[in-house]
Amino acid sequence: MKAILDTGISSNIIATAIAFVIYAVLQIATAKSLKRYGQELQFPDQRVFYIKKFFKVFYVTTLLTSIVLIWGIDLQAALVILSSLFAVVGVGLFANWSILSNITASFIIFFTAPYKIGDTIRIVEGDEGTEGRIEDIKLFYLKIRDSKGQIVSYPNNLIMQKPTIIVTSE
């Protein structure tokens, strides 16, 4: 037992346990805060779910990084692996930049709440445009029901770039 204490393994176990406790507290506090915020602005649960998922991925990544640092894993080797992984992911995201921009726009729409489900909006696009009632706000697009009853999927990044008029608000 003395050999275990001398090597600092018990302090690593305690630090790891503390990291897990901090992770759990942050996860619970963030989930409650986002739920309360979503209820105040009358967002559907599915919309809040996407934002919670983002924070969960961020917290898990932070937790894993903390554990790597606590246990003293060779950082150079870990950084080579991570940089290679980020390079591959970066190329994939660059190839699909619109996916990333749609997710970013979704976060902006969530936190600024310029539109709500049930609002009737008009998106100005030159002489034409899109007008209809917002049926749903997804991670990548808005579902808008036009006057003909058709559902139009409008990308979040485009709605942030185009002038949008709120015709009626619920």
Rank of each mutant, 00 (worst) to 15 (best):
Met1Asn: 04
Met1Gly: 01
Ile4Met: 14
Asp6Ala: 06
Ser10Pro: 13
Ser10Gly: 02
Ser11Trp: 12
Ser11Asp: 15
Ile18Met: 01
Ala19Ile: 06
Ala19Ser: 09
Phe20Pro: 04
Val21Ala: 02
Ile28Thr: 00
Ser33Leu: 13
Leu34Thr: 06
Arg36Leu: 11
Arg36Ile: 10
Glu40Cys: 04
Gln42Glu: 12
Gln42Trp: 04
Phe43Asp: 00
Gln46Asn: 09
Phe49Gly: 07
Tyr50Trp: 11
Ile51Val: 15
Ile51Ser: 04
Phe54Ser: 13
Phe55Val: 08
Lys56Gly: 02
Phe58Met: 11
Tyr59Phe: 14
Thr62Cys: 14
Thr62Ala: 15
Leu63Asp: 02
Leu63Glu: 02
Leu64Pro: 03
Ile67Glu: 10
Ile67Ser: 05
Val68Asn: 13
Ile70Tyr: 08
Leu75Pro: 05
Gln76Tyr: 15
Ala78Ile: 12
Ala78Ser: 13
Ala78Arg: 11
Val80Cys: 06
Ile81Trp: 14
Leu82Val: 10
Ala87His: 10
Val89His: 10
Val89Gln: 08
Val89Cys: 13
Gly90Ser: 13
Ile99Asp: 10
Asn102Ala: 07
Ile103Lys: 03
Thr104Met: 06
Ile109Glu: 06
Phe111Trp: 02
Phe111Tyr: 07
Ala113Glu: 06
Tyr115Pro: 05
Lys116Arg: 09
Asp119Met: 00
Ile121His: 07
Arg122Ile: 11
Ile123His: 14
Ile123Pro: 00
Val124Asp: 12
Arg133Gln: 13
Arg133Ser: 15
Phe140Met: 14
Leu142Phe: 15
Leu142Gly: 01
Lys143Ile: 03
Asp146Glu: 09
Lys148Thr: 12
Gly149Glu: 01
Gly149Met: 04
Ile151Trp: 07
Tyr154Gln: 00
Leu158Phe: 07
Ile159Met: 11
Ile159Lys: 08
Lys162Arg: 15
Thr164Asp: 09
Thr164Asn: 06
Thr164Ser: 04
Ile165Leu: 04
Glu170Lys: 10
